[in-house]
């Protein structure tokens, strides 16, 4: 199945995306990751003010069968968390890239995102070979 990977987003090989707006990164997970997980039943996002670190867990997502860590693609401070989605995580699959954002992070080092994957590179990763 082919999924959408919007061009204006940056991607990680652990299936998170970031959208940079000034010094705030909007973080979510890709349609591919959500499909792989299957029906999402639980989502835990951090409180506002939590410090997150690139490559480290910032929350948890669970499907019926699996529990997965959410890995932060950036380092910084959480300025907003999508608690609405955490209350109804089954909706995440409907709109992963706008309504389905997970956290907004005030980033300390914009260069962290420079090495992220483009939409094309990410698509190649998940659909390739």
């Amino acid at each position: 199945m082919a999924f959408e990977y919007p061009d204006h987003l940056k991607y990680t090989d652990t299936h998170e995306y970031t959208q940079l707006e000034g010094d705030v990164a909007i973080v979510g997970i890709t349609a591919f990751a959500i499909d792989q997980l299957g029906d999402i039943v639980f989502l835990e996002v951090p409180d506002v003010g939590t410090e997150v670190t690139k490559g480290e867990s910032f929350g948890t997502i669970e499907s019926v069968k699996a529990v997965e860590d959410l890995k932060s693609p950036v380092t910084g401070t959480v300025v907003e968390a999508n608690t609405e989605m955490a209350d109804a995580p089954e909706n995440l699959a409907n709109d992963p890239y706008s309504a389905g954002w997970l956290i907004k992070v005030k980033i300390s080092d914009p260069s962290e995102i420079e090495n992220s994957l483009s939409a094309e590179q990410y698509r190649g990763l998940v659909e390739g070979s």
Binding site: M1, G38, D39, S63, V64, K65, E90
Partner: peptide, 20 residues
């Protein structure tokens, strides 16, 4: 288009359209 998994030595469908 079932998603297959290994289960007790068998390759079995874990889901078709979705578990729910």
């Amino acid at each position: 288009n079932a998603r297959m998994v290994g289960f007790s030595g068998w390759e079995m469908p874990v889901q078709f359209a979705g578990i729910g």
